[in-house]
Nucleic acid binder design. Structure first.
Lengths: 200, 200
DNA sequence: CGAGGCCTTGACCGCGGTCAATGCCCGTGG
DNA sequence: CCACGGGCATTGACCGCGGTCAAGGCCTCG
């Protein structure tokens, strides 16, 4: 049931994903029941917001179907920071862990449904079941490693190289998400992205 | 305006650091003793390596004095990914949490000393004292938020803006670290950095 | 059929990279 | 003491990547 960011798996991280996966499979039924207790299924329509900039992120959303994106508004531009596909857990990380107002929106870009878990309820569950705290830590570590990879890409790769990497790592993303969002996710203009694609 | 945003951003980071600090102050003496048990003080000379690319990061290094940097070799260039000053904890994150070979070096760039803690010993300590696991999770979360900030800067700011931000946020860094390292940390060439500085 | 998303294409230009020469500081040896 | 060499930083010339502005093309949906 609970599964992690397969879509973002880069080769070197697969082992760690498997470790998390195995860990979850060995969880006691009482723990799984507890998790079920804390969560409920919610549907969103294309364009709906799961979280709005300025609000505290008090829930996590595990995508059951559809696609969401996380973005911030900087000046007059939108900056897409992450996409969420099936099984991905969508939160505004800083807002979630610090329980401060988010500087990001999370929005459904297709009709979608998600398993919504309350922050406070999950904190209590963690206190009750140390294994959940462990799981939470592993997920956080995974996110940090993912961020390191993404940072490395911005640090070293050209626009074209970043796009090609996305194309090989997440081809389905490129097919299902509007180019406008992809461009801002890659940190390039829509025009440049269009030219890069024409050149291939 | 970017400045304001960042000031606010920095503020929330500081608040979180304070939370971590307070948490540590409330730890039981037995826990602190345990931590002391797992660690020892080691000195390094300028140029020494705390960790070499290709080796598994089996220790964490809390800097007591001096400065270190973390970098990787990509092609024929060095890419500085982080600097470590007094009280900072130096590890190669991915290598540490996954216990896989590191793709980064950690090197002393001045004479320095550090409190070295063994990975395995700390894992055992965490199992024994849940509060240590909690502390570890908080530090990981902090690192992830720091990465988000750095990623945001690469995502949106020009070379000049990134340098100016570094200048206002960490002026001592700019004074104490060779420009070559700073340039690679900012993801720009040494020549460009030199021109940016001349222009101010 | 017209309007509005979404993407493409063109013209132009500035930021930042590369290569190469020069300057500056400092430790070492003649 | 001075001379030389090496490490680090500056400056100049050149150019390509990618941004901006603007004008289309191409859908889908009233």
């Amino acid at each position: 049931m609970l599964q992690v960011k397969n879509a973002k798996a880069i080769h070197t991280m697969i082992a760690y994903l498997k470790k998390i996966d195995d860990f979850m499979k060995q969880l006691d039924d009482s723990i799984l029941a507890k998790l079920n207790d804390c969560s409920s299924t919610v549907s969103f329509k294309k364009g709906d917001y799961l979280l709005r900039q300025g609000h505290v992120c008090r829930q996590s959303f595990q995508v059951l179907s559809g696609i969401a994106r996380k973005y911030m508004v900087a000046g007059d531009k939108e900056l897409t920071t992450e996409f969420f596909f099936e099984t991905d857990v969508a939160i505004s990380f800083e807002s979630y862990v610090m329980q401060t107002p988010s500087n990001e929106h999370i929005q459904a870009i297709t009709d979608m449904s998600a398993s919504v878990m309350d922050y406070t309820a999950f904190q209590h569950a963690k206190a009750q079941y140390p294994q959940l705290a462990e799981l939470d830590a592993m997920l956080g570590d995974y996110y940090a490693v993912w961020l390191e990879k993404r940072l490395f890409q911005f640090h070293t790769l050209s626009a074209t190289e970043r796009y090609q990497l996305l194309l090989t790592n997440q081809p389905e993303l490129v097919q299902k998400v509007p180019l406008t969002f992809i461009a801002s996710y890659l940190g390039i203009s829509l025009e440049t992205l269009s030219r890069i694609r024409a050149r291939i």
